[in-house]
Amino acid sequence: MNDIAKKLLKEVSGLDEMPKGAYNIRENSKTVSRQSSENIEIVSKEDKSGIDIIVKPNTKSENVFIPALVSCSGVHDLVYNDFFIGENADITIIAGCGVSTGDSCDGSEHNGIHRFFLGKNSKVRYVEKHIGEGTGTGKRVIDPVTEVIQEEGSYMEMETTQIKGVDSTRRFTTAKLKDGAKLVIKEKLMTHGEQFAESKFEVDMDGEDSSVNLISRSVARDYSRQTFISKINGNTRCMGHSECDAIIMDHGVVSAIPEITANSLDATLIHEAAIGKIAGDQMIKLMTLGLTEGEAEAKIIDGFLN
């Protein structure tokens, strides 16, 4: 692994060296390092590029790392990763994608198609960070597709972060929830320059007492644009909540498009959206505490995306 890849690895997954337990590190469309653990098995797919991650029932408190790195330009990576989570398992998945195009004018792209099959009463925390690096004009593109199928009583928490350097991203997440299944998605996004980001969710609450909570916090600076689309269908007694909170700066543009459908009298669905510039009184307050305008702005944005 070269230095660029090592640096990306550290930034997306916090790893300095190979972790303990299960992991699969992908660099420029190939697996460069892999390890299974007693409870978590990672195997290559036979018909296409990608891996199956199979977690034994009752696995407790294990981590699995699956970072994907693109450390040069001109790469168009497409990967299929399937996660099979056994009943009652409780694990954390640290994913992430770093794309570096150096000073090249050629772009690079990583498109990950992730499917999660959560067994009964299993619990998954999925943490994902996307970053892009490079000084050339080559576009860095990340288009993730995520599909979540949750059995009875399962719990999934997805935390996704994209703070800088990705020129274009279209994220599409779908989920189907059975009885008592719970899905929490926390998305953090900051776009700069001419970047574009779209995040689209489609959640079906099919099981009684299932619930979903989508929380998106984003900042659009310069001339960047963002679109947040949340489609939530409550098909039975269930609770759905989505919240889009965005700060626009410079000439940034943000659209929030909710579509909540209650197909049952017992479905409770809420959508909240707030888009606006940094509140003037927040800036003033921090300046009266001695911060400069720039420092105050940075604190407010940092906290907001914290």
Partner: peptide, 17 residues
Amino acid sequence: QPVRFKGITVHDLINIA
């Protein structure tokens, strides 16, 4: 009327002050 902030903690604000 004190100002509210999303994501900034009481500890953060005391540090800033």
